[in-house]
């Protein structure tokens, strides 16, 4: 976790420095705000990982001498297959097209999207469809 956090914190520090140089040489607000946002984007997860990395015992993937058996066992639950991402994608696209063709496409789109969200929740509860 240490390298991950340092990587993000480095980006954040870089953005902080450039943001201040940029602001004080140009007083241009749009760019300065965006650079500040980059700083936060690195700082929040980077800081969290840093905080966390000091409290946890190194994971097998952070351990240079770990062997495969250290990580053996459950890695995580991966849904086998699911129709809902497709339905959600279609629903989202149709909803978005409402911004071109008027709100009627959103009726279909939102119906699809909402059923997909319900579908995913049910699927996860039941342990998924395969």
């Amino acid at each position: 976790m240490k390298v991950e956090s340092r990587f993000l914190l480095f980006l954040s520090m870089f953005a902080a420095v450039t943001a201040s140089i940029y602001w004080f040489t140009s007083y241009e607000d749009a760019g300065s705000v965006m650079l500040l946002a980059v700083c936060l984007l690195g700082l929040l997860p980077g800081g969290y990982y840093y905080w966390w990395s000091r409290r946890m015992t190194p994971r097998p993937e952070d351990d240079a001498n770990a062997s495969q058996s250290d990580g053996a066992g459950v890695v995580g639950a991966f849904p086998g297959s699911s129709i809902w991402p497709f339905v959600l994608g279609l629903g989202a696209a149709m909803t978005a097209l409402a911004f071109v063709f008027g709100f009627w496409t959103a009726l279909f789109g939102l119906t699809l999207a909402i059923s997909a969200v319900i579908g995913v929740i049910v699927e996860s509860r039941r342990g998924g469809v395969h």
């Binding site: 495969q68 058996s69 459950v74 890695v75 639950a77 991966f78 849904p79 996860s124 342990g127 998924g128």
Partner: peptide, 27 residues
Amino acid sequence: MTLIAERPAVIGHPEEHEHGRLGVLGW
């Protein structure tokens, strides 16, 4: 069913996983 992925141990044995549906529905 959700597949619980297991990290194979060092000297593993090929596990026969389901390959999911084929064809358009599979895609």
